[in-house]
Simulated scan of single mutants.
Amino acid sequence: MDDNMYATIVGLNNYEGSKVFKIGSIVRLVKEPENDYDLEAIACESKYVGKTGYIANSAKTVTKGTMSAGRIYDKIDDISFCEVKFVSNDSVIAKVLTYEQIKELQDANQEDDFYNSEID
């Protein structure tokens, strides 16, 4: 996996808005292959809130310099993680974590189900 994959999280206003995102916080990425609107949908979940948005997958919503859900879909596991880097009113820029970074996160949070999903 590329060590520098960034993605745009959108749809915040359909959930809790941008106020639940803090720089440095971890967001779980969950593929939704059965999504009725996008076969490459990747939902974003925050630890205490649940679903907070989706990885952008449209040329109109993907921020320049980030990758669309379609471009990262085959590069991540069914469940993966990213770290929030920038927060605006209507979108969030996050760095997709590498396998090694995810394993470190899981090792440091062994008792926390949010981080300890099975990864390949």
Rank of each mutant, 00 (worst) to 15 (best):
V20A: 13
D90A: 09
L39I: 12
N89W: 12
F21Q: 02
I23S: 04
S25E: 13
S91L: 11
S68R: 11
L105T: 05
V92R: 04
V84K: 07
I102M: 09
K60C: 01
A94G: 08
V20Y: 07
L29I: 05
A59D: 11
E83K: 15
A41P: 01
V20Q: 09
E34G: 08
V87F: 15
L29P: 06
A69M: 08
I102L: 07
G50P: 07
K47T: 00
G50N: 09
K19N: 12
K19R: 14
Q106A: 08
Q106D: 11
D38T: 11
I102A: 05
K47Q: 05
L105S: 07
N89G: 13
F21I: 01
V84N: 04
I72F: 02
I23W: 00
K75P: 08
V96L: 12
A69V: 09
F81K: 06
Q101R: 06
Q101E: 15
A59I: 15
V27Y: 05
R71F: 03
L39P: 12
G50L: 07
R28C: 03
A41D: 00
T63L: 13
K64I: 14
K95F: 03
K47D: 00
E40M: 12
V62K: 11
K51Q: 12
S80P: 08
S80Y: 11
K19T: 14
L39W: 02
V96Q: 05
A56G: 01
E100T: 08
I23H: 01
A69P: 11
V96D: 06
V92E: 04
I76T: 08
E45R: 10
E34R: 14
M67F: 14
Q106R: 09
V92W: 07
S46W: 00
V20P: 04
L39G: 12
C82H: 10
T63G: 02
T52C: 14
K103S: 07
V30A: 11
E100A: 08
T66M: 07
K95E: 09
Y99N: 14
N57M: 03
Y54P: 03
I42L: 07
K47Y: 00
Y73H: 09
Y73D: 09
F81L: 10
D77H: 11
D77Y: 10
E45H: 13
K64E: 15
A59R: 13
T63C: 08
